[in-house]
């Protein structure tokens, strides 16, 4: 017995009931629903692993470089500075009003757009692990989300600096960012399940998603302000899910509590995404291993 150890609980009184793995096809919706719920529950239980994997993704990307993950901060800062210079000199825009808006918009949009594009590959990239060990699929979705939240966190100093320079202070309205960001996190997991599974099955979807996101960038008020839109069209803005989902986080940070209709739209679209995602998870969770 030398050279080996028991990593499990000691045998006897305190040992937990043995885990049971049961697989059968043609389950009822309720049974599959329970399995999907279990996937999420067990996945959340692995939060330490998810956090670690997300961190490692960032660290390894920059391992060996002097600045490490702060390259994220620096490259964003350079981009914002260049944009500010460009707009001030070329277009004679009033930077004081515009640059905080632009910086915040671009950083938040980059988060959303990278999240969506990485959601497409969150299962296919984990192919090796999925094929060699049974793990909750939540693990792969969570890892992608953590990674992107950490990238966003590295860009926060840039926003803070811009706000300081232009003395923008969100005030109490800024507190609305908390529920809004929680909504983003839930949506992030939902999008990862939805696109992760869908893109594993249909390899044409990632390019489609990429072009949809690009269109979303131009049709949404990200580099242009909503107020530049003619009053005739402005009431239609909340139809655009990209706008309302962005605005619930951006508005409070700029000191404007989003209008109820914006909230309604953002929550409505989120509910739709979560609903679709859950249906796909219930229906296709057991098939993903065959698709990747």
């Amino acid at each position: 017995m030398e050279g080996s150890i028991s990593l499990a609980m000691p045998e006897g009184a305190a040992s937990p009931p043995e885990p049971v793995l049961e697989l059968r096809p043609n389950l009822s919706f309720a049974a599959r629903n329970a399995l999907a719920a279990r996937d999420v529950r067990e996945g959340i239980g692995l939060w330490r692993l998810i956090w670690k994997l997300g961190w490692l993704d960032i660290l390894l990307r920059y391992r060996g470089s002097v600045l490490g993950p702060f390259w994220l901060t620096l490259s964003t800062a350079i981009m914002i500075a260049a944009l500010g210079f460009l707009y001030a000199k070329l277009f004679h825009v009033n930077l004081h009003a515009y640059l905080p808006f632009l910086a915040l918009s671009i950083i938040l949009w980059n988060f959303l757009s990278t999240l969506v594009s990485e959601a497409c590959t969150c299962f296919t990239q984990a192919e090796g692990t999925i094929r060699s060990i049974r793990m909750p699929f939540f693990l792969y979705a969570g890892r992608m989300l953590v990674r992107n939240v950490l990238v966003l966190a590295h860009n926060l100093p840039v926003i803070a600096a811009i706000f300081l320079i232009f003395s923008v202070w969100p005030g109490m309205a800024g507190l609305y960012v908390l529920p809004a960001f929680a909504l983003w996190l839930v949506d992030g997991i939902a999008v990862a399940f939805l696109l992760g599974a869908f893109c594993a099955r249909f390899r044409d979807v990632p390019p489609i998603v990429a072009s949809v996101m690009q269109i979303g960038f131009f049709v949404s008020p990200i580099i242009w302000q909503p107020t530049t839109l003619s009053p005739r069209w402005r009431p239609l803005l909340p139809i655009n899910p990209f706008y309302t989902l962005l605005e619930v986080v951006r508005g409070p940070l700029l000191g404007q509590a989003p209008a109820p209709v914006v909230w309604l739209s953002a929550v409505g679209y989120s509910a739709a995404i979560c609903g679709l995602s859950w249906l796909l998870l219930v229906r296709a969770r057991h098939r993903v291993a065959f698709w990747i």
Partner: peptide, 14 residues
């Protein structure tokens, strides 16, 4: 190992 789920039949592992 619970990675591939069968299309027919039943697997139970304790």
């Amino acid at each position: 190992a619970g990675i591939y789920e069968p299309v027919l039949g039943h697997v139970r592992i304790e």
